[in-house]
């Protein structure tokens, strides 16, 4: 062997193991199935769906793992993931806030709610708080105009909301999350 080189310079087993560990057995198996077909690359979007439904989003490390296991260049994988609106590249919060910005809610003060939410959470629309609790989204119409202005947090509808209620509502969800973690660790 060459005296200037380390004995093994093949990093594939390591790269592969890292990718497999990250994606988990179910996704790895799905990718292997896809690779057995005549057009494995055409399954890229299907694989990305699978990964997103498992992890809630497509992180850079997930995309790199998909690239390695499917042997598709990472630039292509991340190019595809960033093109489609459906794919999320950032993790989503435990609670998804959908603030209605439709006409009725808007004239009833949804803009002031938006300002208050941004201020309280310290994030903009489309972003997630650093503690991973809340993601703020804008919606066009939630079909509850008689309760305007409304916001949806996960599946709970909140009607005739005023800005000063915002901190109280958010706090209720934080407490809920805390209780859940506490009961989980107790069991």
């Amino acid at each position: 062997m060459n005296p200037h080189c380390a004995s093994s310079t093949n990093n594939w087993p390591e790269v592969k193991a890292v990718a497999e560990r990250l994606l988990g057995d179910d996704v790895v198996q799905f990718i292997e199935e896809c690779r057995k077909t005549s057009e494995p690359n055409s399954y890229l979007i299907a694989v990305l769906h699978k990964v997103q439904s498992k992890f809630g989003y497509l992180g850079a490390s997930h995309l790199d793992a998909v690239a390695q296991l499917m042997q598709i260049p990472a630039a292509k994988v991340s190019g595809v993931a960033s093109f489609y609106h459906y794919f999320r590249l950032q993790p989503r919060g435990k609670f998804i806030i959908n603030l209605c910005l439709g006409t009725a809610c808007y004239v009833k003060g949804a803009d002031r709610l938006a300002e208050k939410l941004k201020e309280e959470l310290g994030i903009d629309f489309g972003e997630t708080t650093s503690d991973g609790m809340f993601t703020l989204e804008g919606a066009r119409c939630l079909g509850a105009c008689s309760l305007a202005p409304v916001m949806l947090i996960n599946d709970d509808m909140h009607g005739t909301v005023t800005p000063d209620q915002i901190p109280i509502i958010l706090d209720r969800y934080l407490k809920k999350a805390k209780q859940e973690t506490a009961s989980k660790s107790a069991s």
Binding site: A60, L63, A67, P73, A74, A75, S78, G79, F83, H85
Partner: peptide, 26 residues
């Protein structure tokens, strides 16, 4: 294959994977 178009429309940008720095790319 270090470069690809990322994003859509006006915000489309040619960049390495994850719009990473060239230094962190292949």
């Amino acid at each position: 294959y270090n470069l690809s178009q990322h994003g859509r429309g006006f915000y489309t940008v040619v960049a390495p994977a994850h719009k990473a720095n060239m230094d962190d790319s292949v």
